[in-house]
Amino acid sequence: MKVLQFLFTSSIGRKVLMALTGLFLILFLVIHLLGNLQLLKADDGYAFNKYAWFMTTNPLIKTVSYLLYATILLHAFKGLYLAYTNRKARGSKSYGAYNGNANSHWTSRNMGILGTLILAFIIGHMSDFWWEYKFGDIPWTKYETSITDETTIATDITAENHGAHIRMGVAGDKEVFITKDLYKETAEAFEQGWLVALYVLAMAAIAFHLWHGFASAFQTLGMNHPRWNPLINGIGKAFSVLVPAAFAIIPLYVYLLK
């Protein structure tokens, strides 16, 4: 892997690493959003829980998720280190007056802070849902779907009654899906106004982070061409607004419908 050593040792390598991990995380946001949108389905959480089960059990997805964790850590800690060394490069004295707004967008100058906010959010978010789902004590639900007319009936159950593992099987003419109910957990969580507010703010941080980060990744990877720049910038700006907005709508929706 000597050929890739430069990703860790040189200034350009480091930023290429930031760009690659950043783009991977952008891709992840899309996948994550597709799952989250299942929350909006009025099916008592069937689709969402199925998605959650799929995401935590599929071997391929599991492998990718480890890559994802590594990417998040790499992106975050390389980013923080970068911010630190970049600050050091200014020297012992900083400017008495510095008018950054005259020459650059504030998001571009505050990627470190925005990223730190996002990291804090991810930690909270993971402990709220990921940890809870994996190790926490959360409600269980049994879904029974009629094979003939595809109607689903959800029943609250307790883990003790059904053995503490998620499973899916067929009983008679019904598909039975017994699962930890992340949907309910989520719905309950988002009934708390302060948490919803926090989520919306975190999404704003992501939006601002992407406002610069999306196109920046392409610049770092050497893609800067007068013919393509408008497209990259356009998609970048649209993405940075629409995706976090879509994420933010879910808790708001849940909260407002409670």
Binding site: K15, V16, N86, A89, N103, S104, R109, Q219, G222, M223
Partner: peptide, 29 residues
């Protein structure tokens, strides 16, 4: 000991000769 580029674009915006950011992209490539 110069810092790393984070593509803020300040350099190009302040460059008295208006050197374009595409040069940095080219160098990265």
């Amino acid at each position: 000991g110069f810092g790393s580029c984070t593509n803020t674009g300040a350099c190009s915006a302040e460059c008295p000769k208006e050197i374009d950011l595409s040069n940095i992209a080219r160098m990265n490539r």
